[in-house]
Amino acid sequence: MAAVDFSELIKDLDTTLTSIEKVLDLPKMQAEIDELQEQVGAPDLWDDQTNAQRVTGRLSVLQAEVERVEGLRARLDDVEVLVELSQEEGDPDSLAEAESEIRRLRALVESLEVRTLLSGEYDEREAIVTIRSGAGGDDATDFAEMLQRMYTRWAERHKYGIEIYDTSWAEGAGIKSSTFAIRAPYAYGTLSVESGTHRLVRISPFDNQGRRQTSFAAVEVVPVLEQTDEIDIPEEEIRVDVYRSSGPGGQSVNTTDSAVRLTHIPTGTVVSCQNEKSQLQNKASAMVILRAKLLALKKAEERAELDELRGDVQASWGDQMRNYVLNPYQLVKDLRTEYETGNTQAVLDGEIDEFIEAGIRWRRESQTA
């Protein structure tokens, strides 16, 4: 077995971490932290709750980011000292411990490096995710619900907040569509690489002859907007429809017309919300989604740009970006990055970080090619 070149491993990690520190600009981040801490200390901060939440939220994010980087730097310094002492004393157990720590550090540094690739205009925003069933009947609506569970489980694993805006249940199994928000910094930049058509191949639980079926679902990701974002929607361009909220199987769960559907007449964009108890609350939430989707359209001056932002999701043959094969073998494969795994159940349980990181790197390479 070849001897481990600890000095080379540590040097590589140090080079990567130094690059990350420069990209993140830690002194600038610390200066912003100091400024935000002064604002938090102001006695009138909570007079404006919206601004207070923005300030405290931004402060928490920056502090966590700085602590994360500084923590990795401290651990790298410690492992370097451990290696030096272990080599001087000829302690193989301590060297094995150092090797394990270096492996852990490499994984953490590589994950942080992916974050530095998120430099788009809206990458640091929270995300609004819409999943729609495509071709495939009951299998497709069931697959759409499987994807919804996959993304919510992913968010739960990372302790990210989730807010369901609207779910349209299918008459048979699963859902026709679902729109929900992931409440976390950089959720949009992270999940935007998930936009596109997803394809499932399995033995259909809805086919009494047990035949293998293929179904599709579309995933669309847009950023949550702030009040300062420029997107004006004249009232006369919006049609408002109200209806009663419904649950699985079409059973009424509300005795008033509280659910709201907004249609932007010029573009035909339609959004719905039935999560809140009142019509006014649902309308406000629907406007959040509509503004986000219209900004995506506004920013896409050419069709190619629109396809990139919204994923050009048709949910049919020929345009899928990821395959989930459960029969005759087990494999989830991203057709853009070629990343794949045979642990399909883990993926459907929300373990998709490797796919996301590969997608972010692929996108950056495509942009710089």
Rank of each mutant, 00 (worst) to 15 (best):
D48P: 08
Q49M: 12
T50W: 03
N51M: 13
G57I: 05
G57Q: 01
G57N: 05
G57A: 02
R58I: 05
L59H: 02
S60H: 10
L62M: 07
A64G: 03
E67L: 14
R68S: 13
R68K: 12
R68Q: 14
V69H: 09
V69P: 08
E70T: 12
L72R: 09
R73D: 11
R75Q: 15
D77F: 05
D77K: 13
D77H: 08
E80F: 00
V83K: 09
S86D: 05
S86K: 03
S86Y: 03
Q87T: 14
E89L: 14
G90Q: 01
P92Q: 04
P92E: 06
P92D: 01
D93Q: 10
D93C: 04
E97H: 11
A98V: 04
S100R: 14
E101C: 06
E101H: 05
R103N: 15
R106D: 13
L108F: 06
L108N: 09
L108D: 15
V109L: 07
V109N: 06
S111V: 08
S111A: 15
L112A: 11
E113P: 05
E113N: 14
E113L: 11
E113F: 14
T116E: 05
T116Y: 07
T116K: 03
L117M: 12
S119V: 06
G120K: 00
E121V: 00
Y122T: 00
E124M: 03
E126H: 02
A127W: 00
I128V: 10
I128K: 00
V129F: 00
T130Y: 04
T130R: 10
R132H: 15
S133E: 12
G134Q: 09
A135T: 14
G136C: 09
D138M: 11
D138G: 06
A140F: 02
T141L: 07
D142E: 13
A144L: 10
E145Y: 10
